[in-house]
Every structure is written in C-alpha cells, then in structure tokens.
C-alpha cells in the first residue's frame, strides 16, 4: 500500500499538484462568488421585510436539492466543464452565508443601533461601523460552513470535467485502486482542514475583540 502510494507520487507528482491547485481554485472562486451573492442578499432580506421570506425561502429550497442533482440538471443548460461545476458549488454555498448574514444582522441589539444613532452616526455609518462589524462573527461562521461544504462537494466537479481531486477518486473507483481513493480522500480532508484553520486565523485577526472576551 505504502509502496503504491510512493510510486504514485513519484510518477504523478505533477498531475497531483495540478489537481490540488484546480481543487483550490474552484473552491476559492466559488466561495468568493457565494459571499458576493449571499451577504448582500442577506442584508436585503433584513432590510425589506417582505423580501426576507422570499429570498431565504428560495435558497432554502436550493439547499434541499443534492449538489449532484444540481450538477446533472445544469449539464443540459451549461454543458460540462468548470462553469456548471462552479455554478452548482455557488448555489450550495450561498444558503449558509445568506442565512448567517440574516441572523447576524438581526442579532445586533436595538440599543446598540440606537446608541450609534444617538451619538450622531448617519444610517450608512451605523451600517458600516456598527451593524456589519457586530454581525461579522456570525457571517464568518456561515462562510466557514460554506467553505467546508464547497471543498467536499468540489470532488463531484470532476464528474463533469472540471478537474480537481475528485478526478483521482473517480479513477480510483473505476480501477478499483484503493491507493488512489485514499490519496484523493485524504487530500480533500487535509485541504478542508487547512482552509478552516486559515479562516480561523483570519477571523482572529479581524475580530481581535472576540479573543478579549474569553
């Protein structure tokens, strides 16, 4: 087993690294896109009472559909390759980010906002200097959940030719090669853990006051 693994790395180092890079890029871009969609939509949902049910409902339904089904449904529309794969991942990642944005913004206590207004902030300043910063820990949690889901699900992207570590796993399945399965699986897990760790470090840097509370 170990020998097989060693042999794989000796012969395929380059394609392995390529797969890792592809996996990382697909995940990162999807996550960024999901943030760009999820956070403003979350804000809009809290802003316009009638919009909230509509927006959150829509994404909740999307969440129920398995990513694989989304992928397959997208093929007739977008064909194969990286585009439909990323679309599926974004759709998967938006709900946790959006929901957490809604909860985070709603959880900011009224007296905090009233204080901000009371000392003379404009509505825009209240939003940027108080509301969003106080909702940020919750939003960050959503981003983290989304990221873990993306990295895991990006494995499926290989199925429609988007590349990434999924390729290894599917090859392993097809050829019945446990070594490839293990290498692929463990790499995805390591990637996921590393990314989670990086996000933690980042949130620690941005929200230093949280550490002070402990």
């Amino acid at each position: 087993m170990l020998q097989l693994t060693m042999a794989y790395f000796q012969n395929n180092m380059e394609s392995f690294l390529l797969a890792v890079r592809q996996h990382m890029w697909i995940s990162l871009l999807s996550l960024l896109a999901a943030c760009v969609i999820g956070i403003p939509c979350g804000y809009a949902a809290t802003r316009y009472a009638r919009g909230e049910k509509w927006i959150t409902g829509f994404f909740q339904i999307l969440r129920i559909i398995p990513s694989l089904a989304v992928l397959i449904l997208l093929i007739p529309i977008m064909g194969t390759g990286i585009k439909p794969a990323m679309t599926a991942l974004v759709l998967l990642a938006v709900p946790p980010i959006l929901m957490n944005t809604v909860v985070g913004l709603k959880e900011v206590p009224d007296f905090m906002l009233e204080t901000a207004r009371g000392i003379g902030m404009t509505e825009r300043q209240v939003l940027w200097k108080v509301k969003f910063p106080l909702a940020l820990p919750m939003i960050f949690t959503g981003v983290k959940t989304a990221m873990v889901e993306i990295i895991a699900s990006a494995t499926l992207a290989a199925k429609i030719g988007a590349g990434g570590l999924g390729g290894l796993i599917f090859t392993g399945l097809g050829l019945n090669r446990t070594d490839l399965l293990l290498i692929g699986g463990i790499s995805v897990a390591v990637l996921s853990l590393t990314a989670a760790l990086l996000l933690d470090v980042l949130s620690g840097l941005i929200m230093r006051y949280k550490k002070a509370e402990k």
Partner: peptide, 22 residues
Amino acid sequence: AVKVRRRIGYVIQQVGLFPHMT
C-alpha cells in the same frame, strides 16, 4: 437629526460601548 445629535452628548442607560472597538 444627525446634526442635532452631534451637538448633544448622550450616555445611554445600557452603557452601550461598541464591543468591537477598543
């Protein structure tokens, strides 16, 4: 309203310091 408030110092009942600022 913003102009009025900037002429007035306001200490609220719940203290209301911003937790994310030093």
